[in-house]
Every structure is written in structure tokens, then in C-alpha cells.
Simulated assay, not measured.
Amino acid sequence: MAQLTLIRHGETEWSRAHRHTGRTDVPLTETGEEQARAAGKLLSDRQFDHVFVSPLRRARETAVLAGLPDAVAEPDLMEWDYGGYEGLTTAQIRETRPGWYLWRDGVIPGDAEHPGEQVESVGSRVDRVLARVRPLLAAGDDVALVAHGHVLRVLTARWLGLDPAGGRLFWLATAGVCFLGFEHEQPVMKGWNQRGGA
């Protein structure tokens, strides 16, 4: 049966430093480029009928290096907008908000480029993505999505019928590759957080 493949972008300077990287358009590091190529090797035996990618640079670079240069930009795959927490680490946020947890407490508004969004808004965006890809999968087409850690975690939760905040259950490494599919026509997870030999 058709399969939905998820690929998180490779490492950036900000992801390496554990900074919340939403809409800031940072490039991959050399390690991130190696990770993206390794993800491509992991997928080298697969043919995709459709590939969609976040328009942000780190995702687009990952798609190209993974051997998916014809990916179509999908704005709803952009990362969670962290608002006023953009660029900060969890430790920095907890200096003023002790015990803060993104999945429970959300974000505060930021500037015009980072107004912020709550997990339900991310859920609405990924629901639109899934509404777009489900007919393709039903037609027997294999689909790949290249995007970001948190948005792909929310998408996985929604695929499995969980609330958007259920994404907290699915930790995803840089350049992690995941497989979603069906068992007896029901959505399931077929593989999670697989990585190439970078």
C-alpha cells in the first residue's frame, strides 16, 4: 500500500544549540548537509510520486541533498511559529517562566515576523497537508514530506487521530526519517526516527 514518508531537515547551528527555530531561515551546517545526504541514501531504493517541502531554506536544502530536488513548496509545512521565544533555548525561557513546556504552555507573541502560534494552529495547518496527501495515498501514490521537527511531530499525531499536542510523544532527530502508512485501512506508524550513516 502507499506510504507517507517524513524527513526532518538536517542540523543547523540553531538546532545544534537547542534554540527554538521557527520561521528564522537558517542554513544547514556541514554536519546537517552530511545528514541530509545520509537520509537520501536511506531512501535510495524508494520512488516518490509526490514530494512536498517546507519553503524554509533548511528543509529545501535537505530535500535537494537527499535526492529530492523537484519537491513542491508547501507553506503549511513551515515550522511552528515560536513567537517571542524564537531563537531562545528552553533553559533561557525558564529563567522567566519556570517549568515552561512548549506542548502544554505554548508561546508568547513576538514581532511582526514571529507573531507566534499555538499548537492548535499548527494542528490546523497539518490537517490541511493531510487533506491534500490522503487522496494521493488512496490512489496508490507514495508521498514524501520534508519539513521540521515539531510540525512533523504534530502531523504524526494528527495522522494517528491524536490531538495536536500528542506530537509531544514523538521525539524526532535532525534528518530523522519516518514512515506512516496503513494496516487494514487504518493509519499506523510503520517506522520512526530512522537515520542514515552520517
Rank of each mutant, 00 (worst) to 15 (best):
E185C: 05
A173V: 10
T5S: 04
H184I: 04
G40C: 06
W192H: 10
W100H: 14
R134Q: 12
Q47D: 10
A17F: 02
Q47M: 08
D141A: 13
G84K: 02
N193G: 13
L28P: 08
T89M: 11
R195K: 11
K190Y: 03
R128E: 07
H20S: 06
G84T: 00
H9E: 07
R195L: 13
W100Y: 09
G116R: 00
R23C: 05
Y82H: 14
A59T: 09
W171E: 15
L152H: 12
A198L: 03
P75I: 11
C178P: 07
I7C: 04
W171D: 15
P187M: 01
R57W: 00
G84D: 04
D76L: 12
N193T: 13
A36T: 01
L88M: 15
Y82A: 07
L130D: 08
L162H: 12
S44K: 15
E95R: 14
Y82C: 08
D141W: 05
D76I: 06
V72G: 11
V177D: 01
R125A: 07
W192S: 14
R23Y: 10
A139N: 04
S124K: 12
T90S: 14
H20E: 03
R37A: 02
P115T: 00
T89R: 14
A165Q: 13
A147Q: 06
G123H: 01
L4R: 00
H150N: 12
Y101D: 15
T89C: 11
K41A: 13
G149H: 08
A66E: 04
T174I: 01
Y82T: 05
V53C: 15
R19E: 02
A2D: 01
D142W: 03
V122S: 03
P109S: 00
Q35R: 02
D105S: 08
R134N: 03
D163Y: 04
E120I: 06
F179M: 09
T24F: 05
T24W: 05
E120F: 02
G83A: 02
L4P: 06
A17M: 09
Q194F: 05
V143W: 09
A173R: 15
Q35Y: 01
S124M: 10
I7S: 05
D25C: 06
I93M: 10
R125W: 05
A112I: 09
R8I: 01
L162S: 07
A139S: 10
Q47L: 09
A198F: 08
E11W: 00
T12S: 10
G166H: 08
D111F: 08
G197I: 07
